[in-house]
Design a protein around this nucleic acid. Structure first.
Ligand SMILES: [Mn+2]
Ligand SMILES: [Mn+2]
Ligand SMILES: [Zn+2]
Ligand SMILES: [Zn+2]
Lengths: 127, 127
DNA sequence: AGATATAATGATAATGATTACTAATAAATT
DNA sequence: AATTTATTAGTAATCATTATCATTATATCT
């Protein structure tokens, strides 16, 4: 059974405390402000643990992984210039039916879907 | 300007000749059947080149990247058990409008979107 | 066709993110 | 307080991908 270590609580607090979809290195730097001698391996280990427990989400973004403390269903926008990831709260009428539609067409069990938009964000557009 | 080397043609043919969304190692093995002494670095170099030219697509899938010779707009289904990626040809009524909707809501320039479904594929379900 | 310029190659070293290892520590339970 | 064992810090190892560099081959130009 899992033990609620100070390190795990600190990592979870950092991931939940931002909307910037940070990577492990950033989470490590932030966590060090609370626990200066925490090791990078501990950060990775706890991130994996929290993912397995369903407490945070992992985003697959090319070279390195990013993490999301918001486990509610929502979408993302990734800027091609600054690579920042923004949350997109979108009320798609057919979002709920879309999984069933694919399940019906393919015969697969469809449990979820990821939707990511791409382009240029407002800040990058104005520079 | 780019030179159409035998190696580049072979890599492109391999990626176009399958629907299995292969990784670099698999493409390397297949290309070696035509060019036995091709190097893995050359495969990577050409994959990157072909991506920059818009001739193939790169899929961000966790540990390693996968490639797709089908550059038409289509969606994917990733099986959580066997990790295979299937194409999903889906007629979303408002596929074109969905980008505009996000653009309008956010003020971003939205050029594209990726949609990936997850669950258990038919073959894995039956075993 | 032959000479030229340089993009591309093969071989290998380097990089960077993530994971594995291990002796020491600390959270939960009795 | 004693016990159990999950977790940690520190470090080594792994794995996919990229960089380096001397050599080769492709496109272009006489
Ligand atoms: Mn998010
Ligand atoms: Mn595809
Ligand atoms: Zn941006
Ligand atoms: Zn499967």
């Amino acid at each position: 059974m899992s033990r609620n270590s100070e390190q795990r609580k600190a990592v979870l607090a950092v991931v939940r405390g931002t909307t910037c979809h940070p990577d492990a290195a950033w989470i490590y730097e932030q966590t060090r402000k609370e626990i200066p001698n925490i090791s990078l391996g501990t950060v990775y280990r706890n991130l994996r643990h929290l993912i397995n427990d369903g407490e945070i989400l992992e985003l697959e973004t090319g070279n390195y992984k990013r993490y999301d403390g918001n486990i509610q269903n929502h979408y993302h926008f990734k800027c091609a210039r600054c690579h920042e990831i923004y949350d997109v709260d979108l009320e798609l009428d057919n979002v709920i039916n879309i999984n069933n539609e694919v399940a019906h067409k393919t015969g697969f069990i469809v449990t979820h879907h990821y939707l990511e938009f791409g382009g240029i964000c407002k800040r990058c557009r104005e520079t």
